Simulated assay, not measured.
Amino acid sequence: MAFNYTTEEQKKTVDQSMLLCCKFFISEGRNIATLDAIERAARSNLETVIVNKFHDRTYNRARYNLVSYVLHDCTGNAIYSPLQQTVVAMAEAAFNAINLEFHDGAHPRLGAVDDIVFHPLACASLDDAAWLAKSVAADIGNQFNVPVFLYAAAHPTGKQLDAIRRELGYYRPNSIGNQWAGWTMPDILPQTPDEGPIVVTRSRGISMIGAQSWVTLYNIPLLSTDVSAARRIARKVSARGGGLPTVQTLGIVCEDSTEIACMLLEPNRVGADRVQNLVEILAAQEGLDVEKGYYTDLSPEMIVEQYMNLISAKKSSP
């Protein structure tokens, strides 16, 4: 259910220390018209701000970081965020423009709208993020007939994203060269989704929607096209492979090299420097050179600062 807060008195109740960030991942990084349509949908709500975006042609994938406030009732429960309407509008634009059957890229994916994750910022709570994740999941599952799997704080038992993806075959390449192409999964899913139908529309695929504390995304280039070596290194770095705790990794093909794409689930516990160091050690054992890694997004503090600046600029513009 959407709440419409439009009066000046209601706007005064907005607490700008209660903020949520949405990372919205789509399976498109090449078609400018499609990316423009999705961005127009994001900008249609003036109370939501795009603070950062990342497009990758080789991955054929894009991510938008959006921020807005969350309102609570008198008992402290979240009841409204402009992000809900904005994210659903972006999903509609993506489903209308992206056909997963014709998609190919170097990054794994299961859906046109592949992943949506909500993070609490400033004084907002993980419960706020989980509420919004579940609300958006219900909208997307019901309005667009897309199977949605919840994860982390949005999941009833806290099941993690990588575990669900593994069960659905996300990490298994299905094509030579681009690694992932078209749709090769069964039309009827082996697991029942949390929202939406068990039958998949091939053009739209599956969406993952979750809520968790801030996750840092950090990629490390290897000066090699040997994807097998990249995947061996990635596995040894990951927590699942006995490497660093709270680190998830992927070995991915790029245009003339490979990369270790890393998700740092607790960046204050295991940061990018430790990951970089271990990758360099393991790459040396493979006889490979490594470049300095790079972040694909901003820090939470930078996200909040960017949001406040952009909101102030909107309010002061005629």
Results as ranks from 00 to 15, higher is better:
V67M: 06
S68F: 06
S68D: 06
S68Q: 00
S68I: 07
S68C: 08
Y69K: 02
Y69V: 13
Y69W: 08
V70K: 12
V70P: 01
L71D: 11
L71P: 07
L71Y: 01
L71M: 12
H72L: 11
H72D: 05
H72P: 08
D73P: 11
D73T: 10
C74K: 14
C74Y: 12
C74G: 11
T75V: 12
T75C: 14
G76N: 09
G76T: 09
G76Y: 04
G76M: 05
G76H: 00
N77W: 01
N77Q: 13
N77I: 02
A78I: 03
A78M: 01
A78Q: 04
A78L: 02
A78P: 11
I79E: 10
I79S: 07
I79C: 13
I79P: 12
Y80D: 12
Y80V: 09
Y80A: 11
S81P: 01
P82L: 08
P82R: 13
P82T: 13
P82M: 03
L83Q: 01
L83E: 00
L83F: 12
Q84W: 14
Q84N: 15
Q84T: 15
Q85D: 13
Q85L: 14
Q85W: 06
T86P: 03
T86S: 15
T86W: 03
V87M: 04
V87Y: 10
V87F: 12
V87C: 11
V88A: 09
V88N: 06
A89M: 12
A89Y: 07
M90F: 09
M90V: 08
M90S: 15
A91R: 06
A91W: 01
A91Y: 10
A91M: 04
E92V: 13
E92K: 14
E92H: 08
E92G: 12
E92Q: 13
A93Y: 02
A93P: 14
A93I: 07
A93V: 08
A94F: 02
A94S: 05
A94Y: 08
A94K: 01
F95T: 08
F95G: 09
F95H: 14
F95A: 07
N96W: 08
N96K: 15
N96C: 10
N96F: 07
A97S: 15
A97H: 11
A97R: 12
A97V: 04
A97K: 14
I98K: 12
I98T: 11
N99Q: 15
L100V: 00
L100H: 05
L100E: 02
E101C: 11
E101V: 12
E101M: 09
E101H: 07
E101N: 07
E101L: 04
E101F: 00
F102L: 14
F102D: 06
F102M: 05
H103G: 00
H103F: 00
H103T: 01
D104V: 08
D104M: 10
G105E: 03
G105C: 03
A106I: 00
A106F: 00
A106L: 02
A106K: 02
H107A: 05
H107N: 11
P108W: 08
P108K: 01
R109S: 09
R109E: 05
R109C: 04
L110I: 02
